[in-house]
């Protein structure tokens, strides 16, 4: 497969995952905000921005307006509309590589978010966010059932799971930095539910631990759960599987390096215990995870996409 094609598939998938994640986080926040007293909006939106790792540049408006603009404006590169457009632009570069069904679905999603952008205030934001989530899920389902699960598909998986691992680490990190972890009182209860919902994890958590919310358990669930699809460990495992499959398909000599790095990320998460993590500080642990994620990304690029020609000619 062409390196450029792998690059586009990877980013198509990352951007779509980002759009979906942002839609989910903002959607949860919009419902939480109904519970808060008036005047506290600014505070909560600031957390949303931090949890999405979006920085406020000096000249931008207040936090609430910026957060709102993430829904349907294209002024910010991290906005949902921008992400969907970027995903579609990447898909357009490789449209002969993906199935027609995938392209048609991504195109539908693109036209619907563009329409929402043009309508501006006229649309119901929560309905819109729901449609973005549905559109992204539909795309994933179509991808899984219409595209050969070969190298290209694996790059799509790699993109999705590295994005998810990074997004979850930022999200979990920001909540744990800002909320008291001693006990869960009434004011925080809703916040913790918000975190779980932002990871589609509330119901799954309740099944595992009942509705008794405890920060340590929440961290364990979101960071270390082996089979819940929105846990960091699950993403790391899927990322490693994709990287291994790519190595097998491409039969590249340099594959072992990226496999080693992805394997280490997965192992870090598989063999950690939550008590040790909390004792050593969740923040610094998540920093390590983020660093390893970016190492996997770089190694993937150096091995398959941006390798030096001299190396490939095997001079």
């Amino acid at each position: 497969m062409l390196s450029r094609v792998a690059d586009s598939l990877y980013w198509m998938s990352r951007y779509l995952e980002r759009a979906e994640h942002t839609a989910r986080v903002i959607n949860v926040q919009l419902s939480l905000i109904l519970e808060h007293g008036a005047g506290s909006d600014e505070l909560y939106w600031a957390r949303v921005l931090r949890s999405l790792a979006i920085q406020l540049s000096g000249e931008e408006q207040d936090q609430a307006t910026l957060a709102q603009s993430l829904i349907r404006e294209t002024t910010h590169r991290a906005s949902i509309v921008s992400c969907v457009m970027a995903a579609r632009e990447n898909a357009r570069q490789v449209r002969e590589q993906i199935s027609s069904e995938m392209w048609a679905q991504l195109n539908r999603l693109f036209h619907s978010v563009r329409q929402a952008r043009d309508q501006g205030e006229g649309i119901d934001p929560r309905e819109f966010l729901q449609s973005v989530k549905d559109g992204a899920h539909l795309f994933q389902g179509i991808t899984d059932s219409t595209m050969t699960h070969g190298e290209g598909w694996q790059f799509i998986q790699a993109g999705r799971h590295s994005e998810r691992a990074v997004a979850l680490s930022s999200l979990v990190g920001s909540y744990f930095r800002e909320l008291p972890q001693t006990g869960v009182g009434e004011p925080e209860y809703l916040e913790w539910i918000g975190l779980l919902r932002s990871c589609t994890a509330f119901e799954a958590y309740c099944k595992a631990y009942t509705a008794d919310l405890r920060p340590g358990r929440i961290a364990e669930f979101l960071v270390l759960h082996p089979t819940f699809p929105h846990s960091i460990r699950f993403s790391a495992a899927s990322l490693e599987a994709a990287v291994k499959a790519i190595g097998a398909e491409a039969a590249s000599r340099a594959a072992s390096r990226v496999e080693r790095i992805a394997g280490r990320l997965h192992a870090t998460l598989s063999f950690s215990h939550i008590d040790e993590i909390m004792a050593g500080g969740l923040d610094s642990y998540l920093d390590t995870v983020l660093r390893q994620c970016s190492q996997v990304h770089n190694a993937l690029y150096q091995t398959y996409i941006a390798y030096p020609i001299e190396l490939a000619l095997g001079a």
Binding site: M1, L2, S3, A250, S252, L313
Partner: peptide, 21 residues
């Protein structure tokens, strides 16, 4: 392919793929 996918070496044309040239 696009131009940036192609590499010419010793008068042979190659494309950059994930499995090398």
């Amino acid at each position: 392919v696009e131009g940036r996918d192609l590499v010419v070496h010793d008068n042979f044309v190659y494309m950059r793929t994930t499995a090398g040239l």
